[in-house]
Amino acid sequence: MFVRKFATALTFAVATAGVALAQSPTRIQQFNAWGAYSYQANNSKVCYVLSVPKEKAPAGVDHGDIFFLVSQRPGQNISYEPQAMMGYPLQENSKVNVVIDGRTFVMFTKGNSAWVENAAEEPALVAAMKTGKDMSVKATSRRGTGTSYSYSLSGISAALKQIETCK
C-alpha cells in the first residue's frame, strides 16, 4: 500500500507541476517515509523528495491525496523548495502552518498547494525537517474545514542527500 501511495503521489506531483515532461518521473530510492524522485523537464532535471502523512484529521473527511515535498530545480535556480500539496482546494488567502519541534513555518496558499511565505525561511524549514522527528501541517479547505496532517521525518536527511547533486 505504501508503494501504491507513492506511485499515486508521484503521478499527482508531476501532474500538478505544470511542466511539460520529456519523460516520466523515476523513483531513485526510498528512505523510510521519504522517497527521492527525478524527471526531465524543459531540458533540465527536476529532483524532489516526497512523503505522505501518517495521520489525517478530522476523521470521516475525504482528504484526497496529501503530500509534502521538497524540490530541486537547478535549471530554474530553485534549491530545496518545500511545498504542501492537498487533495482539495485550500481556502483563498489562508495560511498553512508547518510545525516541527515547536517551531512554526507559515506557508501561503494557491489552489491546492502551499509554499513558504518568506522564501528566506526555506533553508530553516529544511534544516528543521532534517533534525526533527515529526512534522505537522495544518490547513483550511475552501469549505472552511480545518485539517491537520502528521508526517514522519524518518529518512528525510538521506532522501535530501540523494538529490543533493541534482543537475
Rank of each mutant, 00 (worst) to 15 (best):
G75E: 13
V106W: 11
L153T: 01
E122L: 00
Y37S: 00
P82L: 04
D65K: 03
Q83F: 15
S141Y: 13
S94I: 04
G132Y: 04
V126A: 03
S152Q: 10
K45I: 01
A128T: 04
G18Q: 04
N93E: 13
L50N: 07
R143K: 13
G132I: 03
N43G: 03
V99Y: 09
P123C: 08
K167T: 02
T165C: 00
A127F: 06
R27D: 02
F67S: 12
D101M: 06
A7I: 05
A128P: 06
A36K: 00
Q23S: 15
V98A: 06
V49H: 06
A159E: 02
Q29G: 03
M129R: 02
V96I: 07
A13F: 15
T145N: 09
S79M: 11
N43C: 01
L10F: 11
G75D: 11
C166K: 00
G75I: 05
T165Q: 09
S113R: 12
S136D: 13
T147I: 08
G60F: 15
I28N: 02
G60V: 03
G132S: 06
N118V: 12
T26P: 01
S152G: 14
W115H: 11
V19F: 12
K110M: 12
V98E: 05
A15R: 12
D134E: 13
K167Q: 10
V46C: 04
N32K: 14
T16G: 13
N32D: 15
T16N: 14
A158R: 06
V52R: 01
F108P: 00
T131Y: 08
P58M: 10
S152I: 06
F12S: 07
T140S: 04
Q23D: 15
A158H: 05
K110A: 14
M85N: 02
T145L: 13
M107V: 07
K130M: 12
V49C: 11
F105W: 06
K5H: 10
G155M: 12
M135F: 10
E81S: 14
C166S: 01
A9R: 02
C47H: 03
K45S: 09
I78S: 08
T131L: 10
L153E: 02
P53M: 03
L125N: 01
A20V: 11
A9M: 07
Q30K: 04
K130N: 10
V14R: 03
V46N: 07
F2Q: 01
W115T: 07
F6Q: 10
G87C: 02
F12Q: 08
C47G: 02
L50K: 06
T16E: 15
N77H: 15
Q40A: 03
A13Y: 15
E117D: 13
A22H: 02
G155A: 12
G60C: 09
G146H: 07
F6D: 09
A114K: 03
L21K: 03
V126Y: 09
N97V: 09
V3D: 04
S51N: 12
D65G: 08
E92R: 04
G18T: 05
E55G: 01
M86G: 02
P123L: 09
T26E: 15
F108D: 12
A41Y: 05
T165V: 00
R27K: 08
F108I: 07
A13H: 10
G155D: 11
F2K: 00
G144R: 00
G111N: 15
S150C: 04
T26A: 12
K130E: 13
S44N: 10
M1D: 09
V52A: 05
Y88T: 04
V116D: 05
Q40E: 05
